[in-house]
Structure formats: C-alpha cells, structure tokens
Amino acid sequence: MRPEIAVLDIQGQFRVYTEFYRADAAEKTIILVNGSLATTASFAQTVRNLHPQFNVVLYDQPYAGKSKPHNIIDRPLTKETEGQILLELIDHFNAEHIMSFSWGGAPTLVALAHRPKRIEKAVISSFSPVINEPMRDYLQRGQQHLGAFDRYEVGTLINSTIGKHLPSLFKRFNYRHVSSLDLHEYAQMHHHINHVMEATTHKQLKAAKRINVPVLFMNGEWDEYTSAVDARLFKNHVRDCHFSTIKNAGHFLDMEHKSACLDSRNALLSFLTPAPEPSRNRYRQVHANHAFAI
C-alpha cells in the first residue's frame, strides 16, 4: 500500500508534503489532521483502519516532518493558519470527511466553522473544549521544558502523561522522535500550549456552533487529559453531535493495544459509512397464483 506523494503549494506561502492512499473501490476521501509535533507516520494504524474503504490523505504541517525542508519557518503558525491550510487541502483532494487527533482538533474546528461545502462528516479524537486539572499540570510542565528547549524532559513528560498507556516500543519511538526535533518545532508546540492556556471554553464552544455537519467525538476511557466527559460539553453546541468512548484506552487510542484499535475502527466505520437501506421484498406472479420473494 504505497501512497501517491506530492508537495503542494498553499497560496504561495507554504509547501505541504502530502500522501494520498488511493483505493479504486472507495467512493469517499478522508483527510487526517495530526496532533502537535506529530507527522504522517503517527497515522500508520489509522490508515490501515480506513483503507481501502476510503481514499486517505495525510499531510505534514509546514513546520514538521517532510514539509520542513520546503519551508522557512520564522514564526509559529496559529490554529487559524493551520485551519486555512486544511481548507485548501480539502479543496485540492475533494475530501468529504475529516478526522483529527489531539491538537489537530483545534484547526479542524476552525476549518469546520467555515462550513466547507464538500465536507459531509468529521471525527475529532482525543480532544475536549476544557482544560481540566491533569491537562493544566501537563501543559504547565510542558511550557517550562519547551521554553528551555530541554529535549530529555519534553520526551519524558509526554511518555509519562498522555502517552503513559502506550506499549513500551511505541514509547521508545515517541521519545526518539520528540527528543530529536528542530528548535522551531519546540517553539511551535510552546505556542500551541500558550494558546490552549489562554483559550476559554466559551470561545471554543462559540466557534463550534457554526459547524453544520455531523461530528463524532472519540475519546479514550482512561484519557484523563482530554476526557470523554469533558468532550460531551460539545453536545449543546454542535448541531449534530455523536460520541464514542473507547474502552480501556488512553489518549492515543488505536496505538495502545489491539482491542482499542478494533474498537476505534468500528466506531469510525459505523459513523462514516452509511447504514444500508433495508431491502424490500418484491413479488412476481407465477402460473399457480403463488407468490415468492426474489
């Protein structure tokens, strides 16, 4: 399963690395939005859950992954800018669905609030509109370590908090990735954290009211940082709201163990795939005036 790779020009401002997993029988395309500091590699399992039922699009933000060599990043990107990039990619790939993970929920909400015409459904995973106490502690420690560009502490913090339910192998990969990033990527995450700390629940929910497509909020049962309970605050603000709690799973959902992976896949496909219409029995007359179903 090899993707079609392209580096796209976004309004002459950014160059964005993309991977397009085409499926000949798929009728819909879904675009996946990374969390902070993540790259296309983070969605490897999610691609397997969605392909070949859907065409799947992955991309790296201009400051991250394989987009980095094509951009000069002189200041952090705002969630509004990331939302505009997402809108451009939706148009380019003619995507009908969006799925985000963690921080990727922020620019996804921005994009959805613009009511892109092609989008039919969205999935927002591991995201909530509030900063609870565990999240506040995580963010405050993150501010300290990122401000000091302390690679060891940043990697250790992520694995001991939001990543604590990951298998040990994934934790090693996670630590290796996070502790080897460029300084501007730490500055970008520091900017993300500052924005989250300054944002209010009221502002998040007010923007959500403009969304006019069905949205599934998917959270892990064990995720104390973006909890399923907190995510349900969206129910009075998003017009067509759905919720799924993945049992025995933390923040990283389908990456944590097989059962959580299967449950995540089932939740995604049941939401994104229309239920088949009930079949109607049709009858035809035979010589003895008996009827039977075809």
Rank of each mutant, 00 (worst) to 15 (best):
L157W: 12
D137F: 11
T108V: 06
H145G: 14
E120I: 03
A106F: 15
M135L: 14
R118P: 10
L146G: 06
R136A: 11
S125H: 08
Q143F: 06
M99N: 03
H92R: 12
P107Y: 03
Y138N: 06
I124W: 07
R141M: 13
S128I: 07
I124D: 03
E96R: 03
V123K: 03
T108P: 14
N94C: 05
D150T: 06
D150N: 13
S125K: 12
E96T: 05
F93M: 05
V130A: 10
K121S: 02
V154E: 08
G147K: 04
R151A: 11
V130Y: 09
N132K: 14
S125D: 05
R151L: 14
E88A: 04
L109A: 01
M135D: 08
W103V: 11
L112T: 09
L87V: 07
Q140T: 15
Y138W: 08
E120T: 06
Y152E: 13
A113V: 08
I124M: 06
E96H: 09
H114Q: 15
F127E: 08
L109V: 02
E133M: 10
E120Y: 05
P107R: 00
I131H: 07
H145Y: 15
D150Y: 02
H114N: 15
F149N: 13
L109K: 04
A106N: 12
H114C: 14
L139Y: 13
W103D: 14
R136M: 09
A111K: 00
L112P: 00
V130S: 12
T108N: 11
G105V: 01
A106I: 10
L157P: 00
L139G: 08
R118E: 13
G104Y: 02
S100D: 01
E96N: 12
M135Q: 11
G105I: 01
V123D: 02
T156A: 15
M135P: 08
A122M: 12
M99Y: 05
E153V: 07
A113D: 06
L87S: 12
E96L: 01
A122P: 11
P107N: 02
P107F: 01
L146M: 11
E88P: 07
E96G: 10
G147T: 06
T156R: 13
P107K: 00
P129D: 10
L89I: 03
A95G: 11
A122R: 07
A111V: 02
V123E: 02
L112Q: 12
R151S: 10
F127K: 12
V154S: 10
A95D: 02
L89Y: 00
S102R: 09
I124G: 04
H92Q: 13
G155F: 04
F149E: 15
G155D: 05
Y138M: 07
F93N: 01
P116Q: 00
G142Y: 04
R141S: 11
T108Y: 07
I131L: 11
H114S: 14
S102W: 08
V130K: 12
M135G: 05
L87C: 13
E133F: 08
K121T: 07
L89D: 00
L86N: 05
G105M: 00
A111E: 03
S128R: 09
E88V: 03
Y138G: 04
P116E: 04
I124C: 06
S126F: 04
H145V: 14
E133N: 06
R118S: 15
P116Y: 07
L146H: 07
A122D: 09
V130G: 08
A95T: 06
L109Y: 01
G155P: 04
